[in-house]
Write a protein that binds this DNA or RNA. Structure first.
Lengths: 339, 339
DNA sequence: GTAGGGTGGTTAAGCGCTTAATGGATCACG
DNA sequence: CGTGATCCATTAAGCGCTTAACCACCCTAC
C-alpha cells in the first residue's frame, strides 16, 4: 500500500458509478443492487479505503469519538491503578467499533470544564464520561446546557442523567460486619476528599452500618487519596487516645501507606491493627502482609459506561445501570483485634 | 450560552462581512483591517465560537490530534505507574494548544498496527508516539510507508526517526558501580522481555559494566514486567546454587514483587539481599523497606516527545532529543552484602 | 396503451472552514 | 490625469462524505 489515501470518488471512478452509489453501498443502505454493492466493496478494500472521519463528521454531524477527562493531580494519578483499569475497560467496549477515545488529564476543575466545552465546540466528541462527581457538580449543569450526551460513573444522584454505579453501600456494610465479626469495635474509615459524592455515600453507609452494629466509636477522617496525606492522618489517628483496632481506606494507595506508618509505629499488622483497602489491585497483593481489600469491577464499569453512552448518543433513554457487586477479598491484613 | 454552536457564517452575518474575511481575521492573517479584525474577534467570542475540528481538518488536512497506542496486557498496565506518568507529561505539553490526544490500549501487536493504520486512513491524527520499540519493529516500517509523522520514545536505533531518549546505559553502570562499592559481587538483573530494544540496551550495558568491574557472576534473567513472572523468576534465582546478593529490576512492580518473595524465603532486605527498582514511583516509597530505585524523567520524556512530534508535523527535521539523566535514589533496600 | 409502482441508479446541495483568485477603492507619483 | 501599487474585502472552489430529490427504465395491471 502506498501513502495515498483513497477517497470514495477514487472508488467511484474505478467502479464506473457515482460517488453517491459508492456511499450507499459502503454504508449498507438500499439504493444499489447486490452485485454492484459487492463490486464496490471489493474495490474499496482492494484500495484500502477508510472513511475520512473529518468528512463524515462534517456531513453527518457525528464525531465518532467520546471524551474522558480526569481531574486529579499528576502526583496522585500516577500511583492509582484505578484509572488505567478504567481505561482498559473503556477500550474493551470501544474495540472494533468506529469510536475513539479522547483523553485529557487536568489538575483543576476549571480546566476540566473548559475541556468539555472545547470538545463540544469543536464537535470533537459525541459524548463524554464523567467521573468523580461532586455535590452540585458544575459539569452536570454544563452537559445539560450543551445537550452533550454524558454518562456518570457513579451513584445515581442526578435523576435524569444516565449512570453506571456499583453498590458501595452494601460493600461498606459488609466490610464493617466482617470486622465486627472478628471482634473489632473501634473502626476508623480513612476516606477521600469530602467533596466527592462517592465519598459521602460511603461515609453515610459506614456511619449507618456502625450504628446498626452498635459501634459507638466508629468515625470517619479524610485524606486526599495520596500516600502522604494518608500517612499523616493515619499517624494522627493511631497515636490519639483510644486508637482504633481497624482502619478502612478509600483506595489502595492510602492503605499501603498506612502499612508503612503502622510499621514505623511498631504496630504489627494484622495482630495489633487490621487494614482494609478499597479497590483491589496488584499493589494490595504485592505488599507484606498482603492487604485485605474490596474488589470492585472497575473495568466492567468502564465498559458498561461506554456501552450506555453509545446508546444514549444513539437516542436511547437515560438508564441507570448497576454493575456487579463489590467483593471483599480477605488477605493477611485483617485478624482479631488484640485482647 | 445556549446549546447552539455558532459557525463563521453566523459571525459573518453579525459583523456584516463575508465568511472569508472572518476566517482571515480569526486566524490572524493579513487581509482584513485592524478595526474589522477586532470587531470580528469580539463578536466571535461573544458568540462563544470555537472552530469545528472536522471542518478545519477537512479543509486544511490537519487533524489537530496525535495518537498513542499502548500495547501491554491489561493485567500489567493497571499496575505500572509508568504510563499514567507518561500521559501526564504528554498532556502537559499539549495543554493550551489545539491538539488533543487519542489513546488506544491494545493487547497485541497486530491490533496496534491496525490502530495506526486506521487513524491514518481516517485522517484522525497528524502524528503518533511510538513506545516500547522492538527489534525490526513493524511500526517503523508502517509509519514510513504511510509517511505518518512519528516520534519514538526510546533509544535512537532507527537512524532517521526522531526520538527522545534517556541515557539508561549510564544509569545501569551507575547502579552496578554503586552495588560493587557496597561490596556486592554477585548481581542479577531481572529484565523485561528480550524483544524490547530498551531491554537489550540495558542488558548490554549491564554486561559491559559487569565485565569492566570484574564481576564474573553477573547475569541477566527475563520476566514480563508482571509481578507473577517476577516472583517466579526471583524465586528460582534465589534458590539456585550461589544465589546473588543483589537484584536489579527493570521496573518497580517486579522489584516490589521480589520483596515479597524474599520475605517468604526468609531473606531480610537489605541485610541479606539488596534490591534496586527501575522507574521510581510512589510504590517504591510505600513499601517497607522502601526501595532504592532509578528515577527516570518520565513525564519529561512525554512532554519532550510531544514537542518534538509537533515540530516534526510542522515540517522540522528529525532530531534525536536526550532527556535529563536518570538518577539513583538510594533508600532502604540496598546495603552491604552479608559477610 | 397507459397509469402506477418498483428498482437501481445519478445529481446536487450542504456540512464549516480555508485560500487562491479577483476586484474595487484609495493613494502616490511621474 | 492616467497608472500602478497597496490595502481590504468578496467570490468561489474545494476538502470527502451523506442524503434528499430526481430520473430512466422495466414490469405489471386494467
Amino acid at each position: 500500500m502506498v501513502a495515498k489515501r483513497p477517497t470514495i470518488s477514487d472508488i467511484a471512478k474505478a467502479a464506473g458509478v457515482s460517488t453517491g452509489a459508492v456511499s450507499y453501498a459502503l454504508n449498507n443502505r438500499p439504493g444499489v443492487s447486490e452485485p454492484t454493492r459487492r463490486r464496490i466493496m471489493e474495490i474499496a478494500d482492494r484500495l484500502g479505503w477508510v472513511p475520512s472521519s473529518a468528512a463524515r463528521s462534517l456531513s453527518d454531524g457525528r464525531a465518532n469519538a467520546i471524551g474522558l477527562v480526569v481531574d486529579r493531580p499528576a502526583r496522585v494519578i500516577g500511583v492509582e491503578p484505578y484509572f488505567m483499569q478504567l481505561i482498559s475497560g473503556i477500550q474493551g467496549a470501544l474495540a472494533g467499533g468506529p469510536t475513539s477515545l479522547l483523553l485529557q488529564v487536568t489538575d483543576n476543575a476549571e480546566a476540566e470544564l473548559a475541556a468539555y466545552r472545547r470538545w463540544w465546540g469543536e464537535r470533537r466528541v459525541d459524548g463524554v464520561l464523567l467521573v468523580d462527581l461532586v455535590q452540585n457538580d458544575p459539569r452536570v449543569e454544563l452537559v445539560r446546557e450543551l445537550r452533550l450526551p454524558a454518562v456518570v460513573l457513579g451513584e445515581p444522584v442526578v435523576p435524569d442523567l444516565p449512570c453506571v454505579w456499583t453498590d458501595d453501600e452494601m460493600a461498606v456494610a459488609e466490610v464493617l460486619e466482617y470486622l465486627v465479626a472478628l471482634g473489632h469495635r473501634r473502626v476508623v474509615r480513612v476516606a477521600g476528599p469530602t467533596k466527592f459524592v462517592h465519598t459521602q455515600t460511603r461515609s453515610r453507609a459506614f456511619t449507618e452500618a456502625a450504628a446498626r452494629l452498635g459501634l459507638t466509636e466508629a468515625r470517619v477522617v479524610h485524606a486526599d487519596y495520596s500516600d502522604e496525606a494518608a500517612a499523616r492522618v493515619t499517624r494522627r489517628v493511631l497515636t490519639g487516645g483510644t486508637p482504633p483496632t481497624a482502619l478502612v481506606f478509600d483506595n489502595d494507595v492510602m492503605a499501603v501507606s498506612a502499612l508503612g506508618v503502622a510499621h514505623e509505629l511498631g504496630l504489627t499488622v494484622p495482630d495489633q491493627l487490621s487494614l482494609v483497602a478499597w479497590d483491589d489491585s496488584a499493589l494490595c497483593r504485592l505488599v507484606r502482609p498482603a492487604l485485605s481489600a474490596v474488589r470492585r469491577p472497575i473495568a466492567e464499569r468502564g465498559a458498561a459506561a461506554v456501552r450506555l453512552l453509545l446508546d444514549v448518543i444513539g437516542g436511547a433513554p437515560a438508564e441507570q445501570v448497576k454493575t456487579s457487586d463489590p467483593e471483599l477479598v480477605p488477605r493477611s491484613s485483617t485478624a482479631h483485634p488484640p485482647a
